[in-house]
Design a protein around this nucleic acid. Structure first.
Lengths: 181, 181
DNA sequence: GAAGTCATGTAATTGGTTACATGATTGA
DNA sequence: TCAATCATGTAACCAATTACATGACTTC
């Protein structure tokens, strides 16, 4: 049985590109992994401690007056990260409340349900726009980093999926409109 | 602040179509909500107890020798369910390990990564086939139930999204192949 | 000088799975 | 008779968020 907790690998992965503080890890996850991952301070700080205790990262104090600790990945850390990356991806469980509410949709007013779908559509349209900006930004960087093409592939994923969400929303809104007549 | 625990509404929703045992609730969630929801016994049985204590469901023993309890939704239960259905859908957090591994893809062998994507593709192709069978089965039912069209909409969602997954997989596999040259 | 952000961390709580225990019924 | 499935339930554990506490630096 291997752990479900991926926080350690998220941290190690980000540190593989350079040293970071816990605060920076959190920020990077929020921005760069928006849409497919999230981490909270309550996960990150304790995990950094465990990683240091296990020798997978080292801690350096760079604070002058303000407390600040920067973590660097070690050889063992790199090995652990690579080993995890090589393992097959575990079956992910997705939970979509919108589909639950739709499934029981006959119990509420059609306008109410349409509102839910409309909100869903709006949110994902906005996210699609954000992804477009990410893509433009990334493509404008001529000095390509090693992971550049891989980052683009994750962006492409978001674009494909969110496009599918929009198409589905439109189709469902159409079906709901027809039902009202 | 309102609860994140949706188990109670899943149960109430299923009971809104007719009385069920805890065991049957679990089975229905697994089959009918496959792909967008899941529940474990460790959630269902305690929740049924709470629902009964709160007067949202009633319990009847239908066991002869084998212990079996069937739960029915009450008026209060219906009201609670409707009230939840009317509320806006909460922002869902999706976590996709495959994208995490892809993001750090430069650290492992291309063949290794291709294997991950290929597995991902296979799984979702299989699920797409399952959805096709669900759809055929559902469309063959002439005696339409109230929620029939809504169930079809959730199936359509799965089809759209999994189709997008396949397209993305193919595109990424192509990109990875090009990179190797 | 106030708001915003940088920065670290813990405690409490909730959410959820897994493993375990127990036993009856059904069908090959 | 053996495996599968029906059936209920709890305890232990793991995962994760949220709220809280604290304080420095920056920018308007």
């Amino acid at each position: 049985m291997h752990s479900k907790n991926k926080t350690r690998y998220v941290i190690l992965g980000l540190l593989s590109e350079g040293p970071l503080s816990g605060y920076e890890v959190k920020k990077l996850v929020t921005i760069r992994f928006s849409g497919f991952w999230s981490e909270s301070y309550g996960q990150i700080y304790p995990e950094l401690k465990k990683l240091e205790a296990g020798g997978l990262v080292t801690k350096t104090s760079t604070g002058n007056t303000r407390t600040r600790y920067v973590y660097s990945i070690t050889g063992e850390g790199f090995a652990a990260l690579r080993s995890w990356l090589q393992e097959p991806v575990e079956k992910e469980l997705v939970r979509l409340e919108i589909l639950l509410k739709l499934y029981f949709g006959s119990l509420i007013k059609p306008e109410n349900l349409q509102g839910h779908i409309q909100n869903f559509r709006n949110e994902h349209l906005q996210y699609l726009n954000l992804l477009g900006r990410f893509e433009t930004e990334l493509r404008s960087i001529t000095d390509e980093h090693e992971n550049h093409p891989f980052v683009l592939m994750t962006i492409l994923f978001g674009q494909k999926v969110n496009q599918a969400y929009l198409e589905w929303s439109d189709q469902v809104l159409e079906l709901l409109k027809k039902r009202q007549r």
